[in-house]
Nucleic acid binder design. Sequence first.
DNA 1: AACTGCCTCAACCGCACTATT
DNA 2: AAATAGTGCGGTTGAGGCAGT
Length: 323
Amino acid sequence: MGRAPCCDKDNVKKGPWSPEEDAKLKEYIEKYGTGGNWIALPQKAGLRRCGKSCRLRWLNYLRPNIKHGEFSDEEDKIICNLFASIGSRWSIIAAQLPGRTDNDIKNYWNTKLKKKLNQYSMMGIIPHHSATFSSLLHHQTSTSSSSPPSYRSSNNTSTPTYYTHQPRSFTSTANLESHIPFSPSLLSSTNTTTNAALQVGQESYVSQPLTQHYQAKDNILMFGGTTTEASCSSSDGSYGTGYSEVQLGLQNYFYNNGAEANNQKIMVSDNGLGLDLDHDQAPLDYGLEEIKQLISSSTTTSGGCNNFLFDENKTEEKVMMYY
DNA sequence: AACTGCCTCAACCGCACTATT
DNA sequence: AAATAGTGCGGTTGAGGCAGT
């Protein structure tokens, strides 16, 4: 026996909301609030709607300060950046874009932004075969609810222990991405209040233990010094024109076998491991072989992934690991 | 004008998770 | 500890609008 439905399906109206319904809902919530109970709200407000439907309508359309219309370039960048790092976690992405809803961003990504990136790729601005591009465009979203995304798993026993590195101080504060504060605990725990909690600059995120890492998305582990550092920034902090434009959210992926981009060495081994070496802090110039060497000489952990620990003596900003 | 195909986006669905009893 | 209720999230759907023929 499954769980009881949240409302009497036969007695609720479905489909588009009428202006009258909108007005009723808005008036009621402005007057009484939600009362912390969406299920009971429609009846009290005199609406023949499911509570979930009311909630959705309020959050996505009626609540104050909702921003509709065109997304700015800046918003594009933030979305791409976050998508590359955490995947389709729209509510978290929405939390970084005031006035935008997760639904909005999801639709925007699926209908426009993805195509935009495709175009860039056609124009050769993004190497089509790059791991980054692939991850952005073909990020497999979990459709099977029977196997929930692993970032929700609160007791991931396969999560190995990692060492960490010296904290990094940012030399550029101009770019927002440098300061997007992902909290490891939030992203890896079962906490469902991430929207409310993930606010830029919120004090509670600073100074997390350096040993922390978080599972940003099914098959990616992300590391950072403090949580504000465990961001998805470009380590050179530059984007906006030319090549850097296409870096958008790509910075945390490593490709090109040592090819140079924006004065920054981006390197990757052939098994997908990579290092993002911050050129302004780490004058490292590793090639593929050296990376392999580094990997093989590092303390590694076991598990069903390409194991990797970075050299504690290095000052690289962060490391991502691909399963 | 009528038809067709494509696109957009509001809304729904089902599930995971938390809180409460 | 188990059952139930409520909430939030991400994926999917389909009605309506639009452009092209």
